[in-house]
Design a protein around this nucleic acid. Sequence first.
DNA 1: CTGTTAGCGCGTTCAC
DNA 2: GTGAACGCGCTAACAG
Lengths: 332, 332
Amino acid sequence: MTAETKPNKRPTSFDVAKRAGVSRATVSHVLNGQGSRFPEQTQQKVLKAAAELQYKPSPAGRALVTGRSDILVVLIPNATFGTNLQDLVDSVSAQAARHGLSVVVRFAGRDAAETLAAILHFRPVAVVDIGVLSPEDRETLEATGAVAIPRYRQSREPEGDLNFLVGRAMADELLRDGPRRLAFAALVDERQDPFGPPRYAGMKAAVRARGLPTPERLDIPLKLAGAKAALEAFAAQGTPMGIGCYNDDVAIAVLAAGRALGLKTPGDLSVVGVDATEVGQLVSPRLTTVLMQDDALMEQIAADLAELHQKEATQQVHDPRPMVRIIQGETT
Amino acid sequence: MTAETKPNKRPTSFDVAKRAGVSRATVSHVLNGQGSRFPEQTQQKVLKAAAELQYKPSPAGRALVTGRSDILVVLIPNATFGTNLQDLVDSVSAQAARHGLSVVVRFAGRDAAETLAAILHFRPVAVVDIGVLSPEDRETLEATGAVAIPRYRQSREPEGDLNFLVGRAMADELLRDGPRRLAFAALVDERQDPFGPPRYAGMKAAVRARGLPTPERLDIPLKLAGAKAALEAFAAQGTPMGIGCYNDDVAIAVLAAGRALGLKTPGDLSVVGVDATEVGQLVSPRLTTVLMQDDALMEQIAADLAELHQKEATQQVHDPRPMVRIIQGETT
DNA sequence: CTGTTAGCGCGTTCAC
DNA sequence: GTGAACGCGCTAACAG
């Protein structure tokens, strides 16, 4: 045994220094690439020693001195965790790993303040936020030195908001074959949901632009009885009607309710979902749904992530207009 | 201004000490409840100062000295994140909060070693593991001082494993009205899945117990074309057949494939899903599905969580046999 | 009994 | 290339 003196204890920079025959300061400099034009000789010694010891710097020690952890928080709206967001998490995780960051997934709770507090507690390097945080929250966050990603939020005009476009696309599709009475079917879930309102707004805008009456908002639970009751009230006002749904699951609930009420689809009741989930394409009738191509968002996130370490202020990502696409099914 | 001398900087124990007119040691003692029979007087001063300053001890500083973070990791199999697991996460989060712990959700990656490394990096207090970690992984984990929860894993005989029972229940239900050719429809997903094998094993055991031929394993993708192809091969061997599915989504895919092949359900093709998802009960035909009542698991987790701080070795949770229940739908 | 001093744990960084 | 101090909280040892 040469230096394996301390059993079952993670090696510290001191151990590496000892083994390489240098000081801890040197170890730190070499390992951080930073400010180091040490002789090739020395660098190798340090690197070798670190590798042999499987040295991993202590996150706690580092956090203590930098005032910041190596954590990247991904904040997810609680209500919606489908394939889409899972892909986003995977993608972010891969990128973060390249920067040596740890990804922490956090579901937004009912209490926004509590959620924010929990995040701040991590002292994260950055927070990927898909619409959960309010502008004030973001400010609070950035005041602590954390970066809020994507940098430029659903800014400017509503047309820049992907979810607004989703709502508009739903309305357009539902009105394709002539005017109908429209409604937006929101998700009834105790947890908060940031996506519903802009989608509803998009529908309203599109409908108003055609001079039709404002669509109302329906709360559709994911249970047959409740969904049926909710739809029945709306159906009582006459057919044909069209319902833009919060997502494919809600759309499936609306269809089930429609069947139970004896409504014909798409004759009496046409329906559009959102997300193009696999299940939506497997049920009968196959859903017409809106596919969000949030390439712009993903690119922006990737760019912001990349910018995290190389301080060069990245130019704003080219803005390939957020796009939505209708997947034609059998429900419109 | 009295003591607001340092702007935008979190107060440290030093600040509290100064404000309370005591030493940092006293602050630490009082705030940790531990070993402190200081006069009521002093305690109040410290508490008051801490409250006024909104003092929150630095996780990094604490981690440095304790060698352990205040993080509780919840490890989730990547393939499956439905309402069930979400509830589990919520429940664990609530409990953890009571212990002053931060919950970190982690999706198991393709690479087990990498996943484990990522977890170890947090130096967590404990890891809630629903079946992702191998026994060796758990040992590695506990060697670092972390607690693997639930403490007692799907031990002993297979009958103790909830997922095994799920498989058996599926087989029983599918064979209720007489013998059929059975198969297990696994999830085709690049990510790993710890639940499939025990479910399949449960089916096989139940089928063998009746002297019927061993069910084969089908890989059913969540796309119509692929699912149809996979089912067609199996259907070629004759009807009636019964398929136990990995979950409700797969069951919906099987049903879609069956429709496309002109099979009658439940006549030619009967199907059972797992999870009793809302969507499964909204599609037509309504799914027969297996509801897992993992009360035992949840209780064990809760107990282990509670035990985390109060060192009293908790007695083993009473073992209310894991239970599964069939929800009768229209597919069997 | 009440409270303090001092030093540890780990990595970083300024100044020499 | 190094010594020394820092950041923050914990706790053993010790003094009033």
